[in-house]
Amino acid sequence: MIKLNDNLQPSRDITVRSIGDEVMILTLKDTCLYSMNEVGKCIWGTLSVGPANVNAIIKSVSSEYDVEAGLIREDVLDFLNELLSKDIVEISNK
């Protein structure tokens, strides 16, 4: 389970490709293909450049979308936990 002060980074076992506006993530262990919606792409944009703090990701999304803060935090954590469960991101707390 991801905590608010965790730092996350893309897993080494994925490859990411863009086709047009679409960002697609391919897991290398089982070749599963994932694409993201607009919010997902916004979060991935922060994650993809290096380790990103979960609190910082939530603040970044909050600044883009006019939605109640608690709801954004819940949705972002759900999304990040899903990425973690699929080995798309890993925790990097160094």
Binding site: D13, R17, G20, M24, L26, L28, T31, L33, S35
Partner: peptide, 29 residues
Amino acid sequence: PDVVSAFKTLLPQIIRFDGHKTLIEKITD
């Protein structure tokens, strides 16, 4: 279909080797 949908249907039918990063990246490209 749009190119993303086309890619999603094409990739699973290519003979590939799960876990081999270099090869999968080349196949994807």
